[in-house]
Design a protein around this nucleic acid. Structure first.
Lengths: 329, 329
DNA sequence: TTGTAGGCGTTATCAC
DNA sequence: GTGATAACGCCTACAA
């Protein structure tokens, strides 16, 4: 590995002159600078990030952390982050839960965006400080150096479910996601409130527990069909589980929506193709805004208020209108 | 930021003793060790990766580089890499093209896996050496420190297209991907060879240029419909473009496969849902094998032979059997 | 305009 | 068992 020292020796100057030349400082003679730059080229010198960061303590790099490879919208979020970062001269580094703390707590990065159920609150609270801001998605933390960006789950869920009720559905089941997540609580609360508002009785045994993954939706739906407890509509806490459920119903010979309707949440790629009625979360924009917030904070413009972003409803064929005059459609 | 030095001061010992204690060396007294460990806990000490790497020159970390957020199979590849890395005590760090060279050339990582059309060969050739191996997917490079893992495009493409011919199709169009890629050349060559073998004339004007993205497939299909040059079947160099084409055909009122059949390549998530006939690349396994190869090389077991992995065909409803007796189906 | 020296956080070597 | 001390590659006063 060729370092600044080797270049200095080759150029017959000191290391500081090389450093100055490379960093575009003006206290270097025209001739010297050219010679150094040319040598760097020839010798294939490349600055070592470790050494650089260690000294300067600054990196212009943002870290993104995730650990769930099942949900393709992560790519959209990364794309949003990447676009904002690139446009603002920040580098992007991505890691999974396992090595996240390592990169947060070593001036290799200037701040972190995290969207990872496996990431513990303690880890974030330990890492965040006035020099290291964190933006967390889908979770609200009470820490002056951590900004939250959450989706407004409640309102669109209420709106969608009221629409389902209005279309004539009465017998509901709910398929929940990870119960430790705020997302799941809010979506479930919205569900309960709509039930109550419309005086539709709901029994806890019609709540099925899932983990947001397709397989858990599949399993839940299998259980329903085997036990003969298939509802008129199954409301899922996310699309993946809804898709798993649809697959299970199809395998059991049940038609969606004729025999059972299904709703999701997220609007993932597959949702459109499968005709799933769902709530659309603007993921690219979420990533972009997260990066924007983080860079703002790094630059000292600290708005740490929780940001709530809104979502919209996509009506598709997994729910139809049960009311008589529309049956034909 | 609390460092080893602060802990040493608090414990009333020297920095070397703290370092020794933390790294589990046996030349530290039982009592001293306990006191140090407890202090680290209390003071929330966390080792700084930059300092560590700078000194040790080793990192047990593998780098993955990609830049295309349009293709969801990247998540599967990442998952494969992550699983192998975790199981073998390697950390995973992911970056996009922009900052890749920085992380390759600064002992923060021990090797790199790259799958990125934007990554230039020169960059890889500069970075790879006996201490820094690279595994590159979908590209073959002539460099003793770079191992290639490629998909056998040719054989499954020939097999699939022969099947299409056997089903009675004769008027073909080909929708190509980025022409600089080996993948595209091989897939196209397979196409040409099947045409020739079956004495089906193919004119170059029925080759449409795309860039692997959905939009380019959409555009190409729009052009076909508008110019009235819709073939019996359109063979696409990947799924994304095939999906774009299907969308365009549907918008123009054409049915798939009744009015026009479509084939893809990749077997992305959407392919199954949309019923696209395609070639299935085992992505999780690809990622896993790439990580395995890289770790092997890092550990000195250097098999640098190009690895060719095979793919399988998925017959779905975007191609049906045109021959009379099966028309009904 | 250029060079010297100290330090960023860590580990390794070698005295004690 | 423990502690100085010198590196690793780079940057930045400050001195020349």
């Amino acid at each position: 590995m060729v370092g600044i020292k080797d270049v200095a020796k080759a150029a017959g100057v000191s290391v500081s002159t090389v450093s100055n030349a490379l960093n575009g400082r003006k206290n270097v003679g025209e001739e010297t600078r050219n010679k150094i730059l040319q040598l760097c080229e020839e010798m294939q010198y490349f600055p070592n990030a470790a050494g650089k960061n260690l000294k300067s303590g600054t990196s212009n790099t943002i870290l993104f952390n995730f650990s769930d490879f099942d949900r393709s919208f992560y790519l959209k979020i990364i794309e949003g982050i990447n676009d904002y970062a690139n446009a603002n001269n920040f580098d992007l580094m991505i890691c999974t839960n396992k090595s996240c703390e390592k990169y947060m707590r070593s001036n290799l990065t200037s701040g972190c965006i995290t969207l990872d159920v496996k990431m513990g609150n303690e880890v974030m609270n330990r890492a965040a400080n006035e020099n290291y801001p964190i933006v967390v998605l889908d979770r609200v933390l009470d820490n002056p150096h951590i900004k939250s960006i959450v989706v407004n789950n409640y309102d669109p869920m209420v709106e969608m479910l009221q629409g389902v009720v209005d279309r004539g559905y009465r017998r509901f089941s709910f398929l929940g996601g990870l119960e430790s997540t705020d997302d799941n609580s809010e979506r479930y609360q919205a569900f309960l409130d709509v039930m109550e508002k419309n005086s539709i009785p709901f029994q806890r045994r019609n709540y099925y527990s899932g983990d947001y993954r397709e397989k858990s939706g599949y399993t839940a739906a299998k259980i329903m069909t085997l036990s003969g407890e298939v509802p008129e509509v199954i409301v899922c806490a996310n699309d993946n589980m809804a898709i798993g459920a649809i697959r299970a119903f199809h395998e059991s010979g049940l038609r969606v929506p004729q025999d059972v309707a299904v709703t999701g949440f997220d609007d993932c790629d597959l949702a459109e193709a499968m005709g799933l009625t769902t709530v659309c979360i603007p993921n690219y924009e979420r990533g972009y805004m997260a990066a924007q917030s983080l860079v703002d904070i790094i630059r000292g413009n600290s708005d740490m208020e929780t940001l709530k972003i809104s979502a919209s409803i996509k009506w598709r064929k997994s729910v139809w209108d049960k009311r008589p005059r529309n049956m034909v459609k």
